[in-house]
Every structure is written in structure tokens, then in C-alpha cells.
Design a protein around this nucleic acid. Structure first.
Lengths: 369, 369
DNA sequence: CTGAAAGCGCTAACAC
DNA sequence: GTGTTAGCGCTTTCAG
């Protein structure tokens, strides 16, 4: 992937075509305006110590030539703004833009630039995303999905804040208390009188590298079948919590989309017709579950209660409105940015105290449970 | 084989905490490793012509020192990857991440970096967003909401691709054929037998700078009242299309959110109880309209049909599923990126033929109309 | 007010 | 294999 070397020919001056081939430099402007380069700098940056007249003339020439200061030369000499990479698996899942929005806002407030990478589509991994971002950024915030150590290695000393990834050694880490979430949801369902509970987990698309020891997982093909092994941290928490409470939990696994979750829910309802309470991996998939329930003729929550997870705005637009384990995504974004800020300024030691946050979901009761 | 200060395996032992204060340069590494800077370059970039042993040693020293090549120096000497700014008013509105996702994917395929700016939250404008992005990027793609000329001025010769903004002089422009969309929707509603049509427009948050001549708009306060003047291009198209077809169209205006649209719809139904067909500015607001209809006891589409606009995935999750004027957002993203590509390579002239695209909505019939 | 130096950190060419 | 020499384009000194 080595790009061919550029053509550094010295030809210029004809000036007919100011295309992308050869950018004008400060020297071109200086020559054309009949001044020195410093004067150009002063004119372009609205600095004092220059006659209005000169400034105007230089600016005109600059515009004429299509001159744009090189951000590299500028950054090199000035010490640039920090730019942070934001690594996201899928902007198409409403959870992530909600988070990204918050990060971008807070980062912008601090004068940072945010380089976004949505790595899901090309089938890339979080580690590859960080590799792609690395040469361009001073730090990374991301949902990496498992490759924490590799990512931190690529970044070297530059801070990495990973989310939802309890394993691996990142500079900073924000994770979620799924034990708490599971207890809240399961408890609520039981209190409601639900007796036949189910949980729909997300099929792990990656091989679950850093999270699960090799050989630990079963290798059933069939990604959207039910009764598979639990693969996510959330799933594990729910399984554990159910076991602790002595309740049976029918676990299904579905790819992360509403349509897939709908299918899986349909199958679940066939295999376990008495199911009267379902918790779903996230709100998007819960929307699919709601659809399946409706088409099976079941009333929600009367016949079967549903609880989602995430707390994205979508939930309020569904019918019935979705009860969910909500995260305040603006807060999550804020936590990530503030953690990174601390890491960048040195007020927080990488891996040290304060570099690891655990956030909790809040059970938001709406109509579906 | 063991360089001077190698024993700091836990890092902080040497007291040289390579925090944000002073970054190590290539010279530091060269000195510490006892080689020349060129050797360091070769080691860091996996270039040939260096002994494995040396490479390893240099890399170790580099890691030790927390050395990260300056992206500015590197960019300066190598001629860097193109980085494009993506200016978006609100990532929280599902329309934009769907678009952004496509842009990011295609841009990444081309080896471009995408610097994202979500300018809505801080109350900033599109022009400010471009200003913020300008020093960092080689081009901008964006939903600027009106300040096209200012934005292009800030960018100078660098390409700007604006979306949904027929006025102003950008290098490239992608707009939508709202006349076509309006006819399709209104035609469908009439064919269904709807006789009392309504359109809910978005309240223009900005002053509608470049779009509307000053003094052209009424100045009624009351942003969420009904029967206001139409302010958006979509609204104008619907008004015109209705007038041409000789049908009466009750126009309301609502801020751009589901909750606001819900309120406005409620009021609309009170004022025009016989309304039996509604077109809404976008899908998100249509979701709110659906809610209002449901709470008013009306069946959709039996009592009142609803048509949204955008075609975001959300529409399929609603109950009833939303009929909508759909845009293929992946295609819009592709169009934007390809247009920019042409502009960047010079195969398309700014403002010339091929620099302006007009896309059409497709009426996707689902349950709500 | 303007100009002439001196680098910023890195890599492409050539030396050796 | 490795070191040396030039710059990349810009802004900071500091002279005039």
C-alpha cells in the first residue's frame, strides 16, 4: 500500500490552471504581491504591524492564487490543536450517534478536532480503525469491541479511552455495571408477576478476542438460533443474575438489528410460548421484538413485557413505548471526554486511579413493562 | 544490546514522564539509541535497508521514550492524505448519521480522513462550522443550512459540496427535487380519497439567510403555532404543488423534533378536525404526528393517512409503519463523495457541468398511507 | 511598518 | 547497512 511518490517538479508561474495539482505556497503569494513572506503571514493571520493597504493587496493576491496555508507547516511550527479519533462500530445504530454527538460537542468546546471512523461497514475491526486513525490523532476514544491491547500498542503513549470493554490495558476505561442492570430488569419483571423470562443477546460478530479465552465459546454455526451460548458481557450478567435469583432464563442470540431480532423473537415465542417477559440486548433489537410480539397477537405488556437497553430516543416513539435500561448517553460522552482531558493534561495517570469509570443503567418505566 | 536506561519496564522509573508537556522527537530517539535520525525513520516505518537487530533496538527505545512521529512534520514532507470536513447540524436526528455513515465509509475507502463537526448543539451555524473545520481539512461536505457563500469564501479554492441548498455558489451541490416529491405525496393522498390535507413544515431555526430575501418572511413569534408561513424549500414545494392541483393545504410549522411535531399535530387536529391526510417535513416529526393521531383516537390510515419524508430506518419500526418519501441515504452519501472526488481530482469543474446533482425521493408505501 | 534569518520534525535523496 | 545533506511551508525571533 505504498503510494507512488509525488511529482515535485519546480515548474510554476504559468498560473493558468490552479487545479489540485500544485498548491500555491506562501512564497508564490509573496512574489506575486511583491512582498516578503512574513508580510503575507501577517496579512493572512490578521496580525498587527501591517498597513491596511498592504494587507488588502496581499489578501487579494492570495485569493487570486487560491492560496491556502498548509495545515502541516502551520501545525509544525505552532504546535497544533489536539485532534482526537472517535472510533465507532456502526453509526447506523442510533446508540452510537447519540454518543458521538455528545463527544463531538464537548470536544469542540475544548477546541479539539474529532476525526471520526465508522469501522463497521468495511468489515474492519476496532484495532484496524485505531491503526487508521493513529497517524492523524493525539488520542482515541472508542467502542473497540475487544482489541484494547493492540489498539493501545499502536497508540503508544497517546491516551486511549475505551468504552464497554472491561478487559485489556487502555489508558482510560468506561464500563457499565451490567450486574446492576440485570438485577433491576429481572427484579422488575418478577415483581410484575412474569414467570417465564427470556433474554435476547447479541451475536458477537467478532471472535471475541480479548474478552473470552480461546476455546471458551461453543462453536455452533447458526447465528440466529435460540438457546446458544451467551457471548456478551451483558448476556453473562443476565445469566448470572438469573441463576442467582433461581429463575430460568431462556437465552436467544440474534445479530444486532431490529429485523434479525424480530425473527429470533418469533422463533423464541414458538419454542417458549409461555414467555411473559423479555429483556433485549438493546433498544434497537427490542423494537424488533415488539414487532414480533405484535404479529404473534400478543399484547405488550399484558401478555408479555419487554425491556430494552440503552435508552435511546427511539424507544419513546415505539408503540407501546419501550421500558428500558437507560444510559444517559450525553453523560457517557461527557465522561469519556473528561477522562481524556485528564489523561491529556496529566491530571489522571493512565491506568491509575480515576482512569476507570463504571456507569450504571437506570430502569426507565414506560409502557412495555 | 542493552541501551543505557532500559530498566524502566514499568515506565515511570526514569522520571522522564513523557506527558503532554514535551514530546520526544526523532532526534531524542536517535540519540538514545546511538544511531542517526534516518535509521530511526527506517526503523519506525518498516523500511528496508536496516538490520533487524538495529530496528528492534530503535523501536524499543522509541517505545521507552513514548515517541510518536509528528503528523505535521510527516505530512509536510510527504504530502498528506486528504482530509475532508463533514459538517452536520445535528447527529441526534437519525437522518444525519445515516448520511454521515455513508460518507465516512466511502471516504475511508479512498484513504481520506473525515473530520466531523456536529455544529447544532452549541447553537453554531454552518458557516461557523466550516470556519472551525477549515484549517484542518482539504475540502468540506456539509448540510450548511444557508451560509453557502460565506463557507465557500472561507474555504477559498478548496472544494465545498453542499447538500439541500439550492442557493449560493459552492463548488458542488446536491439538492432534491421537492416538486417531484410533493406531487408524488399529494397525488397519492388524493388517490386514496383524502380530501382535507395538511402539511407540517419545520420551523426554520436560522434566519434563513441565503435562502429567502429579507422581508419576505412574516414575523409571527410563536414557533409552534399552526397556519404560519412556509419557510422551507420543502414547504414551498408542497404549497406550490397543492395550489397547482387546486387543493387546500393546511400548513403548520413545528420545531424539528418528534415531541414538538406531536404537539403541533394535536393542535392541528383540533383546528382542522376533518383532516384526513398529513404530510410531514421528515420521518422523525412524522413519528410525533403518529403519536398525536393515536392519542386523538384516530386510526391511521383509515381516519387519517400520514406520509413522512427521508426514509430513515426508524419508519419501519413505528406502528403503523410509516409511508414515506424516501431518499436512499447511502446513495446521497455516495453522490457527495463522488462529486467531491471529481472536484479534488479536477475531473469536475467547480460550478461547472456535473457539479450539481438533483436527487429524487421515492414514495415508499408502507402502512400509514 | 517591513524584511531577513532560524528553525519546527520529518523523510527523500544521495553519500559513505 | 548506516550517516549526511537538503529541503517540505510556515511562523517566530530579530534587524532594518
Amino acid at each position: 500500500m505504498t503510494p507512488p511518490s509525488d511529482d515535485a517538479s519546480s515548474g510554476r508561474g504559468t498560473g493558468a490552471y490552479a487545479g489540485p495539482a500544485k498548491r500555491a505556497t506562501i512564497l508564490d503569494v509573496a512574489a506575486a504581491a511583491g512582498v516578503s513572506r512574513q508580510t503575507v503571514t501577517r496579512a493572512m493571520n490578521a496580525m498587527p504591524g501591517i498597513r491596511r493597504e498592504t494587507r488588502q493587496r496581499v489578501q487579494d493576491v492570495a485569493r487570486e492564487l487560491g492560496y491556502t496555508p498548509s495545515r502541516f507547516a502551520k501545525g509544525l511550527v505552532q504546535g497544533a490543536r489536539t485532534s482526537v479519533g472517535l472510533s465507532i462500530p456502526d453509526l447506523t445504530n442510533p446508540y452510537y450517534p447519540a454518543f458521538a454527538s455528545s463527544v463531538v460537542e464537548l470536544a469542540t468546546q475544548r477546541g479539539w478536532h474529532v476525526v471520526m471512523d465508522d469501522y463497521g461497514h468495511g468489515g474492519a475491526t476496532g484495532a484496524e480503525s485505531v491503526e487508521h486513525l493513529a497517524p492523524q490523532v493525539d488520542a482515541v476514544i472508542g467502542y473497540l469491541g475487544g482489541a484494547t491491547d493492540e489498539a493501545q500498542a499502536v497508540l503508544g503513549r497517546r491516551p486511549l479511552v475505551v468504552l464497554d470493554q472491561p478487559a485489556g490495558s487502555a489508558s482510560g476505561r468506561i464500563s457499565f455495571d451490567y450486574g446492576h442492570a440485570a438485577q433491576a430488569a429481572l427484579g422488575h419483571l418478577q415483581a410484575r408477576g412474569c414467570r417465564h423470562l427470556a433474554y435476547i443477546d447479541r451475536a458477537d460478530s467478532e471472535a471475541g478476542r480479548a474478552t473470552v479465552a480461546p476455546g471458551h465459546r461453543g462453536e455452533r454455526g447458526h447465528a440466529s438460533g435460540s438457546a446458544q451460548e451467551v457471548v456478551t458481557a451483558r448476556g453473562q450478567a443476565f445469566a448470572r443474575s438469573a441463576a442467582a435469583a433461581g429463575v430460568v432464563l431462556a437465552v436467544s442470540v440474534s445479530p444486532e438489528s431490529a429485523a434479525d431480532a424480530r425473527q429470533v423473537t418469533r422463533r423464541l415465542l414458538e419454542e417458549h410460548p409461555r414467555t411473559d417477559g423479555i429483556v433485549v440486548f438493546n433498544d434497537l433489537m427490542a423494537a424488533g421484538a415488539l414487532k414480533a410480539l405484535a404479529e404473534s397477537g400478543r399484547a405488550v405488556p399484558a401478555d408479555c413485557a419487554v425491556i430494552g437497553m440503552d435508552g435511546i430516543p427511539l424507544g419513546e416513539l415505539l408503540t407501546p413505548e419501550l421500558t428500558t435500561l437507560a444510559l444517559d448517553l450525553r453523560e457517557v460522552g461527557r465522561a469519556a471526554v473528561e477522562l481524556l482531558d485528564g489523561l491529556l493534561t496529566g491530571s489522571i495517570e493512565p491506568g491509575g486511579p480515576g482512569s476507570e469509570l463504571v456507569l450504571r443503567h437506570r430502569l426507565v418505566l414506560r409502557q412495555s413493562a
